[in-house]
Design a binder for these strands. Structure first.
Lengths: 222, 222
DNA sequence: GACGACATACCAACCGGTCGGTACTTTTTG
DNA sequence: CAAAAAGTACCGACCGGTTGGTATGTCGTC
């Protein structure tokens, strides 16, 4: 009967979607259960039926974030190139391309949430770290291949470099939030891209990053 | 009578010191005015005598943070080297050296606070960005000198690179909080150091970072 | 005696969480 | 197979404690 199965949204999903948006905009502590319910269009009874406590919602939101983002990255086009370095650079271009619209729409839920909860809610912290490190791990194979192919006898370490990419991206979001200019986040990702190019020493192939930066510098010099 | 003038601490300073610790440990929203007063050993009357509102305390805390940190960095030893690149690398070594003890003791107040307030408290956000960008600016001259000396005809931009260093450091703190391992923050700063070395193309001079990473790899390979 | 620097007492709004109840579905059982 | 029982999903009033904030009083100092 129902032509569109996605219309039938249960309360739990609606609460989780509300959490993704509200927590990224206001933070975890500043988002009340009532806020969540209002935004989701459900009652408090529904909330506490699905989640034992607000903290448990925090854990569920982090896990839901992991699912949503891993689906996004799995189906993204940056896996196509044959060369591992090209794949990494395409990944960074893809991340940069996600920086559009309002800050709460492209920043990272778990990076925001873990800053508030790392000391007071270990369960949330663990779920957040699982999300970050899990995503970092999806880059490890390509980074390892880059090291083997382009920097065989270096002291580089793939897991560490993978986590570093996430650190830069998280830091870029902080810069964007503080300045209100999402361009600053994009610039930091450009620096990270350049780091990879220098590490794996291919001559630079004029990526979009450089062209944009040049264009901006020309504009400024008027 | 009082031999030690610093013992006489007024309520305002005590509240600000309490804010520096509590907000870094719990976040801004989760830190109540009562928490602050209890930790500072003052009453609520004293709090609202000195600060019109909790938000105003947030702004004052960010400004106080700027004062404290700029005094620390001004008197730090990393300004000594004659070469600008050596000064930058010494700065990064200094930042890495600050990563000791508990997380709330070495992480950044304004990076934590701005994530919670960027959308709801513009005054706090602006004070946080002033702190971050103000610190970044203290690096610009040395970075500019590096560009001029070692990468004259590159597309590099000193303000952008200075902000990037802060993005990496902020992201490193998030990684440390999420994982509970401050080593991850140090590792990210090592990557940033390597970026500077590669950008300004001096042959690597076996910095502490590399030696430590080698030592860790040896340990792991047992 | 005015004023800054606090202390005490208090308030309305809001917080996370509970609870009794309803409507609907699924499972059990005579 | 149908009635009964049990379970699931959700509602919304309500609770005690906490929240940011206020009003008023006290005390030492210029």
């Amino acid at each position: 009967m129902n032509a569109s199965p996605t219309i039938k949204r249960d309360a739990r999903s609606k609460i989780l979607d509300a959490a993704l948006h509200l927590i990224r905009a206001q933070g975890f502590a500043a988002t009340s259960v009532d806020d969540l319910c209002k935004q989701a269009g459900v009652t408090k009874g529904a909330f506490f039926h699905h989640f034992k406590s607000k903290d448990e919602l925090g854990v569920a939101a982090a896990n839901y974030w992991s699912e949503v983002t891993s689906a996004l990255f799995r189906s993204a086009p940056y896996h196509a190139p044959k060369d591992p370095l090209a794949r990494i650079l395409a990944y960074l271009d893809f991340r940069k391309g996600l920086i559009v619209g309002d800050l709460p729409d492209f920043t990272c839920l778990v990076g925001t949430m873990v800053q508030e909860t790392y000391d007071s809610a270990p369960a949330i912290r663990d779920a957040c770290y699982a999300s970050i490190s899990g995503h970092a791990q999806t880059l490890e194979a390509d980074i390892e291949a880059c090291i083997h192919k382009y920097a065989a006898n270096s002291e580089l370490n793939a897991p560490s470099l993978a986590l570093h990419t996430q650190a830069v991206i998280q830091g870029a979001f902080i810069l964007a939030k503080a300045s209100g200019r999402s361009q600053l986040a994009a610039d930091s990702i450009d620096h990270l891209r350049r780091y990879f190019e220098l590490l794996f020493a291919k001559p630079r192939t004029a990526p979009a990053a450089v062209k944009q930066e040049r264009a901006r510098r020309v504009k400024r010099s008027h």
